[in-house]
Design a protein around this nucleic acid. Structure first.
Lengths: 412, 412
DNA sequence: CACTATTTGTTCAACGATTGAATTATTTGC
DNA sequence: GCAAATAATTCAATCGTTGAACAAATAGTG
């Protein structure tokens, strides 16, 4: 691709070490087997001397550990493998959703080291109260992390709504939130994490964005481009391009639920007509399947739908087929526009993927010009429930791996 | 690419200078007034000593020139302004389209220093012959560039079709091209440009992509995200995200013409139904306006349409309104998905923009959730005809500005 | 068991680029 | 004519990488 990297900033002496710290640590994170210093030297193009010096810094900063050497055939001094440290920095992930609060801690290697979920209907709960509960859960998570030798270096909060760059939740319709300034509301509470240079104390982001990041994290590392669709009451999408989340000019990308699929069709609460949400949103599917509307909790409605489809219920099957077709029309447009090779069905769509994938694939095959040469994969998400919380925590450790100098420069 | 087979990412001593060369040159290119060395030092964060050393390299390499100092109030030794050199490297832009061949030369500052257009119907012409004509035109361009003290450092070719990463034109339906290996066909001809490390000899890309790059180049520099729509017989789009063209996983992004706007609507030659092209493509508009189909040359058909609309012809106005509405449905989807703040109407749409913009804006207002907070601008392209050729040439000089070390490392 | 080949990791002088302070250059204002 | 002010260069010091030499540790071989 075109290397049009915008002038980021001055490159001074120290930047050199910063960049090589990130380079080496990134290789260790991306490797499937613990690499030796010599492996890293050949992989990065640096000399072994430099790699040794860099690794020494990483070891001292508790970012990597030496592991048992991978057995190797042939002569020679045995290598000492390097792995991401299982004690050291970790990320705190928070999630507020319609019917649960979730908190988790993810370590450098991407392992979930702590997880708490409180199920409760959050719609009648005021934002202040919801955040207070979350802070309490986060405090326990921090203590548990400390017990395991982990230091929380930053936090990210997933919210099912539109969030601007400053953490202001503009609109979270299904929560009933409107212009909630999350950072200001948290100012009264003690800090959730340590302060680490270069790592923001709290990032607030859209649930769909963070779930997509979680999916990115669970894949083999490297530049990936895919669309992650979270099918909840609303339909949101996280767009990962070349291994990075694309947030849009204002941070409001991914509103796939309001892609027009029948421009003169059903009116939508967004003011438009024929939005995807009206045909493939959870309420639409449930209604089309003839399920009682009383089954409000999203989980049970989805589960019931999957049960019925499994049992061969004609109404459920037809509802899922129609929803999948509408979804496929939208996805085909996105693939035509962005030339993605993978579409991930997450959130409430994941358990319904066996019935949604075929019609989606059919629409892609019929509508995408380039599908013949570069096939498009449609698959369910690998992360299960609370994917956004895991993705949120993962986004923190991802930042540390991408810029370890900040962590190393901290006082401790 | 570059002869140094060092794995990408290794940051060695020399990289430091490479990065700072790019940093300083980028600032000079982005400045609206010729900056002094001292200005650059404060802007980049480097010391004046370093900036002086870097600028010395740039001056020696004919990338920048010293200009008359900008008059400044107050005491002190007058600054010496730095501007991009008007002699030195330049980019060669080539374009093959349905009814013309175009060649142009763009210098570092983005000025078009040479331009040739040969009008002819290229559909009955074999690819080999078309390329041969282009090579002849390029030869003259090179000579003219040399007369002006310019050295062609690389070339880019715009084609109205799908191009893969290796320069193979998979499909150019309106030219009748199918699997045309452009680099192989050019192998027999003498090289179009000098060989410069780090600058590919010839890039073949989609016309819409390169036209979008041209538009990016003509804007105030900096990270921009916009959608550039080229309305020709087909409808293509170039997607610029954060100042870089997004090409997609396989390089086939931007097929906006096949976004479904009426999923059960008119059949499209792509195999799908209700594609945008069937409602907002040039042929569709012309047919809806009741114009004789015989007016084949695209330019005249568009011009005639604009004339009729100007004169208040009801049929033309209705046709344009309907096309704009269809376009608006597609654009609303894209904006919902990507959160772009600007949509540029280029190609055949540019002269029709006065009539297309209102319905497009109306659809955006009605369908985009976030439009209330972040307004979306819809405007005609600033570059006129042969925008793709200019964009192609501009993409070459852009690469040199982004990575000047390659140019400086050349033999000369 | 000694010896060689082989691979890993470290040590160290040299080198290259940036830095910061001092110095030179050039103009305005008094 | 002189001081103040700003621009640009010079130069020793510093920091990180380099390349080669060296030490460490193991398998294979006789």
């Amino acid at each position: 691709m075109s290397p049009t990297n915008a002038p980021a900033g001055a490159v001074r002496q120290g930047s050199l070490r910063e960049l090589n710290l990130a380079l080496v640590l990134g290789r260790i994170a991306a490797a499937d087997r613990p690499p030796s210093r010599a492996d890293l030297a050949t992989a990065t193009g640096l000399t072994r001397a430099t790699v040794s010096a860099v690794v020494e810094d990483l070891l001292a900063g508790q970012l990597v550990d030496e592991a048992d050497p991978a057995p190797r055939a042939g002569a020679g001094r045995p290598a000492r493998g390097l792995v991401l440290a299982d004690q050291g920095p970790a990320g705190l992930g928070l999630e507020i959703n319609v019917d649960y609060l979730a908190v988790c801690v993810v370590d450098l290697a991407g392992q979930v080291r702590h997880r708490t979920v409180h199920r409760a209907d959050l719609r009648p709960v005021a934002p202040t109260e919801a955040l207070a509960r979350l802070v309490a859960m986060a405090g326990q998570a921090r203590a548990d992390a400390a017990r395991q030798g982990l230091t929380l270096a930053g936090a990210a909060l997933a919210v099912p709504g539109l969030v601007d760059g400053a953490g202001l939740v503009r609109l979270a319709p299904n929560l009933g939130w409107h212009d909630v300034p999350v950072p200001a509301l948290l100012a009264g509470h003690p800090p959730l994490t340590e302060q680490v240079p270069g790592v923001p104390a709290l990032v607030v982001d859209n649930e769909a964005n963070l779930a997509a990041l979680g999916e990115l994290h669970s894949r083999p590392p490297g530049p990936a481009s895919f669309l992650h669709i979270s099918g909840e009451v609303g339909i949101g999408a996280g767009i990962v391009l070349n291994g990075a989340l694309f947030r849009g000019v204002r941070g409001w990308s991914g509103e796939i639920g309001h892609l027009p699929v029948h421009p003169q069709g059903r009116p939508c609460r967004c003011g438009g007509q024929g939005c995807l949400e009206q045909y493939a949103g959870q309420e639409a599917i449930v209604a089309a399947a003839g399920l009682a509307r009383a089954e409000l909790p999203a989980d049970t409605a989805t589960a019931r739908l999957a049960e019925l489809a499994e049992a061969g219920d004609a109404g459920a099957l037809r509802a899922l087929h129609d929803a999948g077709t509408a979804l496929g029309v939208a996805v085909a447009g996105v693939v035509n526009l962005l030339d993605l090779d993978t579409v991930v069905l997450g959130g409430g769509y994941a358990p319904l993927a066996p019935w949604l994938c075929p019609p989606v694939l059919a629409e892609i095959a019929g509508r995408v010009l380039t599908a013949a040469w570069s096939p498009v994969t449609v698959r369910p998400a690998t992360l299960g429930a609370e994917a956004a919380a895991v993705g949120a925590a993962g986004s923190v450790v991802r930042q540390i791996v991408a810029r370890p100098a900040g962590w190393l420069a901290r006082s401790g």
